[in-house]
Structures are given as structure tokens and as C-alpha cells.
Design a protein around this nucleic acid. Structure first.
Lengths: 255, 255
DNA sequence: CGAAAACTTGATGGGGCTCAATGCTTGTGG
DNA sequence: CCACAAGCATTGAGCCCCATCAAGTTTTCG
């Protein structure tokens, strides 16, 4: 295992980070990158099961996920837990806290992970001085809004099977964008967490996996999923019909 | 009916706007307000049924609602419509479009309304020069994220009756914050729109209104709702249990 | 004023939940 | 390295909440 010190080496800069296309620094010039590197000196480890922040914590930093996998969730009154998102490398968590200087959700690592800490006050200062960074940061916050609204659509208007298909296709897309296989990947979360995210019970998630497998659309073995027929999965979501659809601007699930 | 010209009078400035506590200008000093007034010279009317923007429209401006009532919604594949929010005076719509320079949802007036147009490029420029405005704008985007996550919780973890109660209490709070009665207000949206927002069918919404009325918690007559027992409505949401709850930081629905 | 839209109410049905039992995986300590 | 416990996942049976279908009433608005 690497030591914390080993992390403060050359590669701990945005300019050399393989995620630069996806993450905070996307679209910045060389000079701007150098300044961002100043901001992002601290990389932190989070072991599986460790919280990055909890609801109620004061906002100090946002976190860019360098490697690993997280979930965010809300706790409600009687202990009900609602998973609000799964985050992978290149994504930023913590933006919920800007509203009241206090986190409103919990973020926990689902596997051993590394995050880059982004002191928020300094990010705002830098954003004032660097229009490109400002623009990009606004895009990131907006993207989170769009993502959340995609989940609202999923929860409000889709049936169980569609929800599961939507999640699988979404993960597939995100792995693809990171250079991994779009057709086969490991689920980092449990069935229960999937269920919470999709507004379903664990038994329902399990049954739908079984059914999708029986139908030949996917194959599931433990946490490993293989998408065998992506086109059919898309059709399940009615995405095919969009072509025939009259109006043009119909929403693509994108979360 | 006022003419468009009549709107460009003295009161068409943030500094004199009664919503200054709630809206974009909240927390700004006098000099800063004056500069914001420059930005917000254009007030626009939207008649009931008129779209403020549609999915696919290029982003030019955000809109601050000066008066009236809007809904935002997504259109999905086969024509399914998902209402993603109801917006009232003092609230900002359009932030979804920042991500891709293009609106992802539709915004339509549910009653005759007036909005202040906020040219986005100029807002960003001003935000770079005015830290307080920058900070406040970030808070607004973050608030939208928090709000959306509240809806995710509602759709993912609540039962039909709880959802309806949550919506009523939410509207009540927002009217209260604007100086109106928290106990009695007019619903600007149809039962169908409520249903879409809450992930329920119109018949279910209707039945739950009837039930809540039978239980003495509310009284509904057409579009007018009276909350007769707010404490009991809160209890329906399990908010009472929060007091006894062990952990402290449990989420309050806040959308 | 009249037609269309919105709303309510009842009867019936089904998709997903609950309850229960069993098999499987994983991580830990002897 | 194995044993074993605890958590995770699957599967079945039965049920319930909310959807669907249907009919009738009220409200809205051109």
C-alpha cells in the first residue's frame, strides 16, 4: 500500500492527471492549469466505508474523485435512506453544501478511493480571476442539476425494468467515457443500494436482473454485469421511439 | 392590462423590488444593487400557457420570476411528461441550461406572470467583479441541487400520502416566506400536474385530497387548499420522529 | 352559453412490496 | 488455509398500494 506521502509526487497535479478531459480542469489552458495545480495540492485517501462528509458538516472543500467509487445519500426521519447518486472518478461531490455552507447529504466510499480536495473559498477566488474556470465550474453545477432532474424523471415516470436498464446504460456510458469497457463492468454497489437509488426494493432489483438475463439482454454474475444487447436495453427505455417522435426535443436520460 | 412600456418604470429595479430578500440580489450592498439593476433592465410578460423556454433552446438568459407561477417539465420518449418543479416569485429558472448552453427542460407559465431576464454572459462577468454576487449565485445553483435531491427523496422513499403532504407543506412554507398565508392558498397547477410532479396518477391525487380532508387535516375546494392541521401533516411525514431520533442529522425535506 | 377540460368517485387489476426460507460470498480470526 | 459468521443475493407465495378503466359531475373559458 502506498503511503500518504507517496501521493504527493509529480503526478499529483491536474496537468498530468489522466482525468483532465472529464474533471474540473477540462478546457483550461496551460497557464490556468498551473494555477489550478496550486489549488489542488492535497490528495486524500478514503478507505471503503469511510465517509467523505456527512449531512451537517460545515463546507470547507469540494472533492474531485481521482479514483474509486462513492455514493451520496440522504437520511430521512425514520431512518429511511435514499441514495441520491453514484460517483466515479473525474466527478465532483459536495456541491450541495454551497447553499447553506453545510453539507445536506452523506458521501461514502464504496471502495478504496482517492480524492482531490478543493478548498471552496479558494476555488471561488480563482474562478473570479479565471473566466474559463468560472465557466467550467458553473457547467459542473448545472450538470449536477441536469443529472438530478434525470433521476427525478426516472423515479417519477419509469417502471421498474426501465429504471434498472437506465442505470445499467448510464454506468456503461460513464465507464466508456473513462476508457473502460461499456459492455462489461463490476457493480461497486450492493443490490440494496441500487434499489434505494432506483426507488425499488432489493427483491425487485434481483428479480429484474434475473429477468433481463433470461431475456438475453444482460448477464449477471455476482457483481459483474455484461450488457449483451445494448440496443435492446435502449429500446426498453423507449429511446428507439424518439426517432419516430414528432416533436424533436425529447429528453435523453442523462444522469 | 399594462403595456410592455409601463413595465419599464421606476419599480423595475432590484433595489426597489419587494422580493429582494429572496431573489438574486439577496445580501448585496447598495452599490452592488445599483450595478445589478443595470443587468436586469428587461422585464418580460408571460401569459398563462406561454413557454419561457423549451428543451433545446440556446441559453441566453436565466429568468427571475417577478410575479406569477411556473412549472418546469421534461418530455420523455413516448410522450411521457415529468414535471420537475413549480416555481414562484423570487425564484430563478433556467440554470439547467448552463451545462451545455442549451435548455434541457421546458418552462411554462401557469398563470399570467412577469419575469426579469438575466443575460447569463453578463451575469458571469458581474459575478467575477462582485464576490457577493458570485457567492449568492453559487448558493442559488446549489439550492437547486438540494431541492432536486429533496424531490428524489420524495419520489424514491415516500408513499403517496406523504408525497402529497410534503408538497402542501412545501408550498405553504414558500407562501409564508413571501408574506402570504401559510394556511390557505390557491393551487396554481392542475391535479394532473401535481400527479406528474409527485409520480402519481391524477385519480390518486384526487383520492388523497379527499382522504386528507376526511381526516380533518386539510380542506380542499377546487383549487383552494386550507391546511387545517399543519402539525398533523408534519407528523405524516415522520418529522415528529426526528426529535426522538438518535443520530441528529436527519434530512428535512426542503424543496 | 356550450364544449372541452378538469375533477371526483367506484370497481377492478397488477406491479412491486412484504414475509419467509435458502443459498452464496466475503471477510475475519483461529 | 480453513471455518464460520454476517452480510448479501435469490426465489417463491401472497398481498396491498396505487394504477387502470369507466362513468358522471363540476369548472373553466372561448
Amino acid at each position: 500500500m502506498e503511503t500518504a506521502q507517496a501521493l504527493k509526487t509529480l503526478d499529483n497535479t491536474c496537468s498530468r492527471c489522466s482525468l483532465s478531459e472529464i474533471c474540473l480542469c477540462s478546457g483550461l489552458g496551460e497557464k490556468e492549469l498551473a494555477r489550478l495545480d496550486q489549488l489542488l495540492r492535497y490528495r486524500k485517501k478514503a478507505r471503503r466505508g469511510e465517509h467523505l462528509f456527512r449531512a451537517g458538516d460545515t463546507l470547507h472543500s469540494l472533492f474531485a474523485i481521482h479514483s474509486g467509487f462513492f455514493k451520496t445519500y440522504l437520511l430521512y426521519a425514520d431512518g429511511r435512506q435514499q441514495v441520491t447518486g453514484f460517483q466515479m472518478c473525474g466527478e465532483i461531490v459536495g456541491m450541495d453544501a454551497i447553499s447553506q455552507d453545510e453539507h445536506t447529504c452523506y458521501a461514502i466510499a464504496l471502495e478504496d478511493s482517492e480524492v482531490c480536495e478543493i478548498p471552496f473559498a479558494r476555488l471561488e477566488k480563482l474562478a473570479r480571476e479565471m473566466p474559463a474556470l468560472q465557466r467550467h465550474f458553473h457547467r459542473l453545477m448545472s450538470r449536477e442539476i441536469v443529472r438530478d432532474q434525470g433521476v427525478i424523471l426516472l423515479l417519477g415516470a419509469m417502471r421498474a425494468e426501465e429504471r434498472v436498464a437506465a442505470l445499467l446504460l448510464n454506468l456503461s456510458q460513464r465507464y466508456l467515457a473513462r476508457g473502460y469497457s461499456a459492455a462489461e463492468f463490476r457493480l461497486r454497489m450492493t443490490r440494496k443500494e441500487i434499489g434505494s437509488y432506483l426507488g425499488l426494493k432489493i427483491e425487485t432489483v434481483s428479480r429484474i436482473f434475473t429477468k433481463l438475463q433470461a431475456d438475453g439482454l444482460i448477464s449477471v454474475r455476482n457483481k459483474t454485469v455484461t450488457l449483451k444487447n445494448i440496443a435492446a436495453l435502449r429500446r426498453l427505455l423507449g429511446e428507439e421511439e424518439r426517432v419516430k417522435s414528432r416533436a424533436g426535443n425529447v429528453y435523453q436520460v442523462n444522469f
